[in-house]
Design a binder for these strands. Structure first.
Lengths: 386, 386
DNA sequence: CGGTAATTCTTCCGCCGCAAAAGTAAATGG
DNA sequence: CCATTTACTTTTGCGGCGGAAGAATTACCG
């Protein structure tokens, strides 16, 4: 089982830069890479040769999109052999383990979920080991495992504190490495999603980028210079103290009028339940708001205003080039997107350039995919923070 | 007069890095510089030799602070000859020009102010030229001029729009260069102050840093990776749309309850005047609040809450390592600092690490000094954004 | 259909700049 | 007086880069 795969570490710095550029930005010709990395054409021949020989890159037949009508020798796009390596990503929730296998490009190849019946660290690691073994049968080239957990994670290896698993200082990476023989990275789930979007998603190539997730809780990730800014309160409850409206609703979770009170799915359901006595799902509430039923419409409208205010504040103070709204709670945007945008405008300078806002409803496999990206990063960079 | 001074441009990249490190971080031994720049000891000998020969660096007699009792050959600190070049900084207000001469380290050597009796661009440039000529008499080694103006500045040369001077598209840098023969940089005054603090002040060596100024208006500067993030609404009125309290006071300037309404000196004076009919100075209002007179106390308390809220939001979303409060309106912190800090705590996660908050009352010469730093940057980096 | 221009990629050479190693210098301590 | 420690200098060798020249492949044009 100990098929420890060679990482990209033997590559020189220049080679890694080339490989990374191609990995993240798709098929590129040598000239294009030279331009992006500010290298000479000659250097590119030198750098790509060993990469092609080692099988990491291939010359792809000039795709139709590339074949613009222009004279001169046609360019020869290079691409990563995305299938040459596979990665496993797990997202652990209270009662389920969601697993995916991805390519080097983080495209999901396979999904595989299993209920979690125990919270004992050893038994959870056993289950992850079993799931990995089964996935390894059909995907021989497994190169690493990434695990996303809600809660505080230290050194990409130790779960410092996870309320819903009741864990403290569990050396999860070690436990799973012992059982699989593969390199394992553990990270907070929001951090993993942010990294994935930075490398392969909405934040690709951006210098300043923000991810805001809405779901059971609020998540926030700030990426500067292509790197995620770590922060102390990370997933011990973001947004509980982001007071958006001091007169806002009082909910079991979060301070009065906080982002958590106004926006998270449990809080919105709580507000409806408290007001009407009926226990509706989030989707039902959104549908009700769309039909302009009074209570759902009011709660959703308030949530939309809160979201708009938050986005505006983030834009004003962090000045990102793009904001990604993700999570299970962004269905809000479909129903009340106009109200959100209107609130943003009210809180922004009229001359300020509008911040591109992207919405992406994520399911649990997206979170698992985020975890897989961490494993990709470790392989590619040699270590997580490069 | 055309004593155009050689810039650092002939220096190699490595030499510039060394010079910059010494310039910004004070006397450093070769070993220390090697450590900071991740270079070998050998490289440092090579790089420093021409810098010392050209007179830019000197070996300083080992200061007392350096002479820790430790064995081995004593280190030989290197320092910039700060006096080898002088720089002029101007801050233009509606009715005054504030001027300073600084060293390479941006220490103010001389102050020289003159009333501004005209807003005609040519005559203003004449006056700046005259002031420069007079300063040049006593400071022979002038290497550049920086000018700070409230309003929109383009390409560090053209005042695109300045309401209080009634200027549009004035090529100020060109006008002053013609009259002085010195390289001239024009920038928005807040941007200049931010750069100065980033290089030589509170933000020295930090990766993420925020400057918030309170005065006649609100200013905001975000520094990431040592570089200021430019933004579109820059000084066409920051903070007018940062709604802190939707039920806040209505003032002539800024949206209801905006940072401008709650915090700027004119708005605070307006609130007191509107409520009591008395036209008090900002200092008198602060003194009144300190003596717990009802109206000043209420207005200042509200301002302190607003400031605390803003600082907390900035900390939450931009995650700076330090926030500098500057401008003429930060006297607020002396009177109501505790209320500000209390509000920050209320809007921050209890586990979040507290953001170092620094307060610096700036007078107009500090703004002029900021402008001089721009001239230093141009000389040192060859261009402004290096 | 052949010549020319344009464009990409390759080959080769020279050089810059770095690290490593070895040598020198200046202090402390026994 | 000599070993030890630390700082700096000199020398050497090499990796990696840019630049020039050339090969390959296409479009354009008469």
């Amino acid at each position: 089982m100990t098929t420890r795969v060679a990482s990209w570490l033997p590559l020189s710095a220049g080679e890694r830069a080339v490989a990374l550029e191609v990995l993240v930005h798709g098929p590129l010709s040598r000239t294009e890479i030279a331009r992006r990395l500010s290298l000479s054409a000659g250097s590119l021949t030198r750098l790509t040769k060993p990469l092609i020989e080692s099988g990491l890159l291939v010359e792809v037949p000039e795709g139709a999109a590339f074949a613009e009508v222009r004279q001169g020798r046609p360019s020869q796009p290079l691409d990563i052999v995305a299938e040459s390596r596979s990665f496993v990503g797990f997202k652990i929730t209270e009662d389920m383990v969601y697993g995916v296998v991805t390519t080097l490009r983080s495209e999901i190849v396979t999904r595989y979920d299993r209920p979690l019946t125990t919270h004992d660290p050893g038994e959870v690691a056993d289950q992850l080991g079993e799931m990995t073994a089964e996935l390894a049968d059909s995907h021989p080239g497994l190169a690493g495992i990434g695990i996303g957990v809600g809660g505080l994670v230290q050194d990409r290896a130790v779960v410092g504190e996870s309320p819903f698993l009741s864990w403290r200082d569990v050396r999860l990476a070690e436990l799973v490495e012992e059982r699989t023989g593969l390199p394992v990275v553990v990270e907070n789930d929001v951090a993993a999603l942010v990294e994935a979007e930075t490398w392969f998603g909405a934040g690709r190539g951006l210098d300043r980028f923000v991810v805001l997730t809405i779901g059971a809780g609020i998540g926030y990730g700030l990426v500067l210079g292509g790197k995620r800014v770590p922060c102390a309160e990370e997933d011990r409850g973001f947004g509980r103290h982001w007071i958006v409206d001091p007169n806002g609703p009082l909910t079991p979770d979060g301070e009065r009028g906080s982002a958590v009170s106004l926006l998270t799915i449990p809080s919105i359901r709580y507000q409806i339940r408290a007001a009407t006595g009926r226990d509706l799902t989030y989707e039902e509430i959104l549908a009700g708001a769309a039909r302009e039923e009074p209570m759902p419409a009011r709660v959703i409208d308030e949530a939309a205003r809160a979201l708009g205010t938050l986005v505006a504040q983030i834009s004003n103070f962090a000045m990102p080039q793009k904001i990604l709204l993700a999570g299970e709670g962004v269905g809000l945007m479909d129903v009340a997107g106009e109200r959100v945008r209107e609130t943003i405008r009210a809180h922004r300078h009229p001359l300020a350039d509008p911040v591109p806002l992207e919405t992406k409803v994520s399911d649990f496999h997206d979170w698992a995919r985020g975890a897989a990206v961490l494993a990709i990063q470790v392989l590619v960079l040699g270590s997580y923070d490069g």
